[in-house]
Nucleic acid binder design. Structure first.
Lengths: 350, 350
DNA sequence: CTGAAAGCGCTTACAG
DNA sequence: CTGAAAGCGCTTACAG
C-alpha cells in the first residue's frame, strides 16, 4: 500500500472513466465533437479524482499563452509603469494570456550579440512575445528580434539613435499633449509661459517641441529651462524654477515635463513667497498620484498608463495572430485634467 | 525546397553533431559526465544552428521554475505593492525563477469551493507556488491550498476572521513600528500625541495598539481618531485632523497610519494657519514616495517593500525545497526615518 | 563518458 | 462521436 500519490494524469482519468485519453483531452478542450453524455461523465470523473491538467505538457503542443512584460533599465517600478503593467495584465486575462514580469538591465553601449538575456527569453517556448517599457535602446530590441519573438514597445520609452526603427508601438503624442496644455494657458490669458524639462529625455524633448510650436503659433516668446540639471525630478523642478525667477522675464505660468517636476517648481515658488495659482499658474504632465493631492491640486495632462498597457497587450496579440508581416502603432490620447493650479487672467477666449 | 523553417529541436542538433540526443541534453544541463571535447563540439553546433531549447518540454519533467505573484482585491498596483513585486522579481532572478504577475478578485464571502481561479492556478504545472498580497481573506487561501500549491503571504495584508490561520508569512511589526514612532515623539518632549487611522484595517489596528501601549507606558493619555471616515486616505487625514482640532485637547504631535493620511493631516493643519513642525509635529508610516517630497519632508516609519518582496520569494523557495511540513514566518524590521516634520520641544531625553 | 530507448503528460490526425 | 497510435521536445535510468 504505497503512497502512490503520484499525480493523476490524463491516462488515469481515461482509465477510470472507461474512455480513451483522446476523449478526455477533447473534454478538456471543449471540443465540439463529443456527446453531451460522455462529456458529462468524464467531467464527473475529473472532479471526483481532482484531476488538474498539466499546463506545460499542453503548451508544448499549443501556444505557451505567456507574454513577457519587461521593465528595462529602471531600478524601480514606479506608479506609471506599474499602471502599464496592470493594464497589460487585465487585458491579458481577458485574452486568456499570462504575464511574466521581468526586470532587464541592458546598457546602451553593449552590441546586441553580446547581450546576455535572462533564460526566460533565451529559451524557446516560454513566451510568445515581449512588451518593452522603461528605458529601451535599439541594441536590446535587435537582440530580442533575433530570437524571433514578437515585440511591442511603449513608444515613448524608446531612445532611438537618430534613424528611427520600425517598431510595433503604443504611444502618446507628447507634442500634441504639450500644445494642448499651452493652448489652455493661452486661452486663460497667459502670455508669458515657461517650460521646464531636460530635453535629453525623449519625452521631454517632444513636449518641448509642442510647447514651442504652440507659442510660435500665437507669436509668443518661448522661455524654457531644458538643460541637464539635478537627477531627481523634484530637485530638477526646484532648480529650474529658481533659474526662471533669476531671469529677466518672469513667467505667469509654467509648464512642467512631469508632475514631479511640477512639485519641485511649486516648492520653489512657495519658497519665494508666491502662491499658486494666484501669483503663478502651473501645469504638470502624466497625472500621477501626486498631482491630485498637491497643495493646490495640479492641473495636468493625463497620460493613461493602464490604457497604454491594455493597448500594448492587444497589439501584441494582433501581431502574433497575423504573423507580424508589417508594423503598426497605436496612439493613446492624452487628456487635460483641470484642477486648481491655473489662474484665469481674463483676456480673450477663443 | 520547402521553407521547412520548422523549429530546430534537440534531435536535429544531435544529428548534425553526430551524437545522441542524450549527449546534447547533457550539454544543455551542464552535466558533469561529459567530456570537455564533446561538450565544446556540441556547443558549437548549437550556436551554428541557433538552437534554443524548448523551455516547456523541459519543464514537464523538471520544475516549472515559475512563481505567481498575486495582487488580490486591489484595483491598482500602487507603489507599495509595486515595490514588493519588484523585490520578489529581483530575488527570483537570482534564484533562477520567473514571476508571473496576476490580479485576482475574490470577495470575502464566497465559499472556497465556489471561487473561480484563473487557469494559471487552476491548471497544474504552471507555477510552483504563490505569493499573496493585497487584501487577502481566508477563503482564497483555503482554495489555493487545496490545489496543493505552496503559499507565502504578505502577512500584514491578510484579513483574518478571528481564528488566526497558520501561514507562511513575511510581515512587519506595526505594533512595534508605531511604538518606535511614539517613543520618538516622547523623547522629543511631546506629551499630547494623537493617532489617526481607521482601525477597520488590520494594519492600522496594529499601529493603534502600539500607539496606546507606548503612551500608557509613559502615563500619557491616548487621543485618537480611529473611526470609519472618507475612503481616500488623503481625505481621511483632512477629516481626522479637523476632528482633532475640534476636540478639547489639541495635540502637539500627530501619528498617522500612513503617509497619505499624513499628507491629508498636513493639509488641514496648514489650512488652519498652523505650520509643520513649528506648531504641530507630524509622523507618517510606510515611507512612500510622497513622504520625502512633502512640503516639510515627512518623518516616517519606513516599511521596506522591496525587502518584503525579496523575503517572500526566499521563503517560498525554502518551503518548496523542504516540502513545507511546518509553517514559518519572517519579520522585516521597520525603521524610523528622521526628516523635517518633528519639532524638538526640549524636556527630558532618556 | 556515451547512445538507444522509455517516459514526461498532453494533443491530434487517422480510421472507424 | 470515439479510440489506438503517433508525436510534441525534452530528460533520465539503463546498459554499455
Amino acid at each position: 500500500m504505497k503512497a502512490k500519490k503520484a499525480s493523476i494524469n490524463i491516462r488515469e482519468v481515461a482509465r477510470v472513466a472507461r474512455v480513451g485519453v483522446a476523449t478526455v483531452s477533447r473534454v478538456l478542450n471543449d471540443s465540439s465533437l463529443i456527446s453531451a453524455k460522455t462529456q458529462e461523465h468524464v467531467r464527473a470523473v475529473i472532479r471526483q479524482l481532482g484531476y488538474r491538467p498539466n499546463a506545460l505538457a499542453r503548451r508544448i503542443i499549443r501556444h505557451s499563452e505567456m507574454v513577457c512584460f519587461a521593465l528595462v533599465n529602471r531600478p524601480f517600478l514606479h506608479s506609471f509603469h506599474a499602471g502599464i503593467l496592470q493594464g497589460a495584465e487585465s487585458r491579458a486575462r481577458m485574452l486568456k494570456r499570462h504575464v511574466v514580469f521581468l526586470g532587464i538591465n541592458c546598457p546602451k553601449e553593449i552590441p546586441p550579440s553580446q547581450i546576455v538575456l535572462p533564460p526566460l527569453l533565451e529559451e524557446k517556448g516560454w513566451v510568445e512575445g515581449v512588451i518593452l517599457t522603461g528605458v529601451v535602446y535599439p541594441n536590446l530590441i535587435s537582440r530580442i528580434e533575433a530570437l524571433g519573438l514578437q515585440i511591442v514597445v511603449f513608444g515613448n520609452n524608446v531612445f532611438t539613435d537618430g534613424r528611427r526603427r520600425e517598431l510595433n508601438k503604443v504611444w502618446y503624442d507628447g507634442v500634441e499633449g504639450q500644445i494642448k496644455a499651452a493652448e489652455y494657458l493661452i486661452n486663460h490669458g497667459h502670455r508669458s509661459i515657461a517650460f521646464v524639462g531636460d530635453t535629453e529625455y525623449p519625452w521631454f524633448r517632444e513636449q518641448y517641441e509642442g510647447y514651442v510650436k504652440a507659442l510660435r503659433a500665437h507669436r509668443l516668446r518661448p522661455n524654457a529651462v531644458i538643460r541637464k540639471g539635478p537627477e531627481s525630478f523634484v530637485e530638477y523642478g526646484k532648480w529650474a524654477a529658481n533659474r526662471l525667477f533669476d531671469g529677466k522675464v518672469v513667467p505667469t505660468a509654467i509648464l512642467s515635463g512631469n508632475d514631479e517636476i511640477a512639485l519641485g517648481v511649486s516648492r520653489s515658488v512657495r519658497h519665494l513667497g508666491l502662491r499658486i495659482p494666484a501669483d503663478i499658474s502651473l501645469v504638470g504632465f502624466d497625472d500621477r498620484e501626486i498631482a491630485a493631492v498637491m497643495e493646490s491640486a495640479l492641473t495636468t495632462v493625463k497620460v493613461p498608463s493602464q490604457e497604454i498597457g491594455r493597448q500594448c497587450m492587444e497589439l501584441l496579440m494582433e501581431k502574433l495572430r497575423e504573423g507580424g508581416s508589417h508594423v503598426s502603432s497605436r496612439l493613446v490620447p492624452t487628456q487635460l485634467i483641470e484642477r486648481d493650479s491655473v489662474m484665469w487672467l481674463g483676456s480673450e477666449r477663443k
